[in-house]
Deep mutational scan, measured.
Amino acid sequence: EINVTSHGEEQAKHWIELAKRMNLDVEVEIHGDKIIITIK
Rank of each mutant, 00 (worst) to 15 (best):
I35A: 01
E17W: 15
I35K: 00
K34T: 09
K40S: 03
I37W: 02
T38S: 03
K20H: 07
E9N: 08
E27Y: 11
E29Y: 13
K13S: 05
G32M: 09
I39H: 00
T38N: 03
K13N: 07
I16G: 03
D25I: 15
K20S: 07
E27P: 00
V26N: 00
A19Y: 15
D33C: 14
I36W: 08
R21T: 06
K40C: 12
K20A: 09
E9I: 13
M22T: 02
N3W: 14
A19K: 08
I16S: 04
E9S: 08
M22I: 04
H31G: 03
V26F: 11
K34M: 11
I36K: 02
G32A: 08
M22H: 03
E9F: 14
E1S: 11
D33I: 11
I39W: 10
E29G: 02
R21W: 15
H7G: 05
Q11A: 10
I35T: 01
V28L: 04
K13I: 07
L24Q: 01
I16N: 02
A12K: 07
I37E: 00
I36H: 02
T5F: 11
L24N: 01
S6K: 08
I39T: 01
G32S: 10
L18W: 15
L18T: 02
I30W: 07
S6Y: 09
K40R: 11
I2G: 07
W15L: 04
I37Y: 01
A12W: 15
L18F: 13
K13P: 03
L18I: 06
W15H: 04
V4Y: 06
G32D: 09
H31Y: 11
G8K: 06
K40Y: 11
Q11V: 08
K34Q: 06
E17S: 13
H7V: 11
G32R: 07
W15V: 03
I16F: 11
E9L: 14
E27L: 11
I37P: 00
R21Y: 13
E27T: 13
V26P: 00
D33L: 12
K34G: 03
K13M: 08
E17G: 13
R21K: 04
V26G: 01
E1V: 12
K34F: 13
E9K: 09
L24T: 01
L24R: 01
H14S: 09
Q11F: 14
Q11W: 15
A19R: 13
A12R: 06
S6R: 06
H31F: 11
H14F: 15
T5Y: 06
M22P: 03
D33W: 15
K34V: 10
I39G: 00
I39D: 00
I35N: 00
T5K: 05
K13E: 04
K13R: 10
V28D: 00
K40N: 02
S6Q: 05
E10M: 09
E29L: 10
W15E: 03
L24M: 03
E1P: 11
A12C: 15
H7Q: 06
K34P: 00
A12D: 06
A12Q: 03
R21H: 06
W15Y: 03
K40T: 06
G32Q: 09
K20F: 15
I39S: 01
K20G: 05
K20L: 14
I30L: 03
V26D: 00
A12P: 05
I2S: 08
L24S: 01
I36N: 02
I36M: 03
H14N: 05
N3K: 13
S6H: 09
N23C: 09
E27K: 12
L24G: 01
L24A: 02
H7L: 10
E29S: 09
D33A: 08
N3V: 14
T38K: 09
N3I: 14
N23T: 13
N3Q: 12
K20C: 13
E10K: 09
D33K: 06
E17D: 04
V4Q: 07
E27W: 11
N23V: 15
E27A: 07
S6L: 14
N3F: 12
I35V: 03
R21A: 08
G8D: 12
I37G: 00
S6D: 05
L24F: 09
E27N: 07
A19I: 11
I2H: 05
E10N: 07
W15N: 02
